[in-house]
Nucleic acid binder design. Structure first.
Lengths: 114, 114
DNA sequence: TATACCGGTTACTTTAAGGATACTTAATTG
DNA sequence: CAATTAAGTATCCTTAAAGTAACCGGTATA
């Protein structure tokens, strides 16, 4: 195997994961649902300062399509829609744990330097 | 502590880490250096199809400023510049391992469905 | 009657990241 | 002498993501 295909082989799964994490709001939405459990559209919106309905809607749809988040329409009046992390979405937990762990050490390093 | 500041507390380190990983090329550059060890600017460039010198230069500078990559000018003629992951850069390894691990399972799931 | 909330969608504008290309200085090769 | 390599920089352009704001049908409240 040449150098470039070895790089590709290493990169592909990393890029696959990153596709789900990248963007300004996706991680914030996932963390919000992780902490908040089952939440309605406007609950999520109110929990995340400055997010717009357009982006929240778009990102939730994306996450639903990738089976990270589930969407349930409740037959109330007016209807409400509940979102929560799927079981599969929760398998991202170790990823978030590592991101968190490294971030905490990184912040300590930066503050230590400052 | 209210809901929003709890979310912020969880998010901050994640966002700190993501800052270093986000963008189209940073992860590719880091993976290339991880596999290739010490490399010159144009070696890196040739290893990464379609990257432009402008972006490679910019991203390497960013990574150097964050102590992920070291830059060494060699007194050859013409001068050459070598880049490699710093010891600190290599502490990102567990992060990449998790991203890889999840990505492999994710790909299997997607192929399984298709 | 009208005002607000529910969960969105549509159309338009702005911003940031990245791409394309030319250029730089100094040395080397043919 | 002309072309090439090295490691970039400068300038302009394109694109994709996100922001802004208006609007939708349906329901409920004052």
């Amino acid at each position: 195997m040449d150098e470039k295909s070895e790089i590709s082989k290493k990169l592909l799964p990393i890029m696959d994961t990153m596709e789900l994490l990248s963007g300004r709001w996706k991680i914030i939405i996932m963390t919000t649902l992780y902490l908040g459990g089952r939440m309605r559209f406007n609950e999520i919106k109110r929990s995340i300062p400055r997010i717009t309905g357009r982006v929240l809607s778009k990102d939730l749809k994306f996450l639903e399509q990738h089976d990270i988040v589930s969407r349930t329409v409740k037959d109330t009046s007016p209807i409400t829609v509940e979102y929560e992390l799927t079981e599969y979405g929760r398998t991202l937990d170790p990823v978030f744990k590592e991101l968190t762990h490294w971030g905490i050490k990184h912040r300590k390093k930066i503050i230590g330097l400052g």
